[in-house]
């Protein structure tokens, strides 16, 4: 019986009716032209659909996007001549990448050779490998190439625990790196170590240092996710002191309200 009023009921459920039209639906129900039991069951089901939730996407999704964006930006740059290309290729193969690959190869080979010996040796080697990895991360973060720095941030995301050196290097990157994408990825990685007080304080104090809308929004999302209420005053300062884009301003206001 309600088929006759399917469009009207659809509008009602999606909140697309004005007061007059809502009153018409109620009148149709009262007059028995719309079956009340069917209608109420549908309305309740529509409300219950709220229960179907979505899990959080992994950090890998964000990593992949920013790697793709960096590649696109690199390919959009003007083309160089052959000798410049050759030099660029040669430069890309130098210090950080070669050293990192070399260290991993040596350490990996060494661990392989030692397998079968006792566990303490393996643990020691694993720790040494982590130290070397951290050293390479810091070195790569200081590199000239955006792609290398982005890669360094991604590698640091694989560190199982927050290391002081890596945290300091990432916070420095967040406050100083010229690339927006590298700074956003630093936030994603630092978020993983949100239990660490240095990370929490560093993220909050980084808010005032940012000029990019993208980074400010990424920080706002991170603050809500980590529940850092002391960031509210930083956002309030930004709203008062800066002439922010209207979308960014709205986002910060909703962030403050959420916090």
């Amino acid at each position: 019986m309600n088929e006759k009023y399917e469009e009207l009921i659809a509008d009602y459920l999606n909140g697309e009716l004005d007061e007059q039209e809502k009153a018409r639906v109620e009148a149709l129900i009262a007059g028995g032209e719309i079956d009340m039991i069917d209608f109420k069951a549908m309305e309740q089901l529509h409300s219950e659909l709220e229960m179907v939730s979505t899990p959080e996407p992994s950090a890998e999704m964000s990593n992949r996007f920013y790697a793709m964006l960096e590649e696109e930006k690199a390919s959009a740059k003007p083309k160089f001549n052959i000798s410049e290309k050759f030099n660029e290729l040669f430069a890309a193969l130098t210090m950080p990448r070669l050293a990192y690959a070399f260290v991993l190869l040596i350490v990996g080979g060494f661990i392989g050779a030692q397998l079968g010996s006792n566990d303490s040796q393996i643990n020691e080697l694993t720790n040494q490998m982590q130290d070397m990895r951290e050293m390479m991360i810091v070195s790569m973060l200081e590199g000239a190439s955006t792609t290398d720095r982005l890669r360094a941030v991604n590698i640091s995301a694989e560190l199982p625990i927050a290391d002081e050196k890596a945290v300091r290097a990432l916070l420095f990157t967040l406050n100083n790196d010229e690339s927006v994408n590298v700074r956003v990825q630093s936030i994603e990685t630092l978020k993983k170590w949100g239990e660490d007080e240095t990370v929490r304080e560093g993220l909050v104090s980084a808010i005032g240092a940012q000029n990019s809308d993208v980074v400010i929004i990424a920080l706002a999302d991170a603050m809500v996710e980590m529940g850092l209420q002391n960031s509210k005053s930083e956002f309030e300062n930004l709203i008062q002191e800066r002439n922010l884009n209207i979308n960014v301003k709205e986002k910060l206001e909703s962030t403050i309200a959420s916090l």
Partner: peptide
């Protein structure tokens, strides 16, 4: 040509898009 602005769009819309696909596929 301001490709960095795509980052802004990603930050704003990656979750609604993910939610759209997740409810279509129920596959992360």
């Amino acid at each position: 040509g301001d490709l960095d602005k795509l980052g802004l769009l990603f930050e704003r819309y990656n979750r609604p898009l993910y939610s759209f696909f997740y409810k279509k596929t129920f596959h992360t």
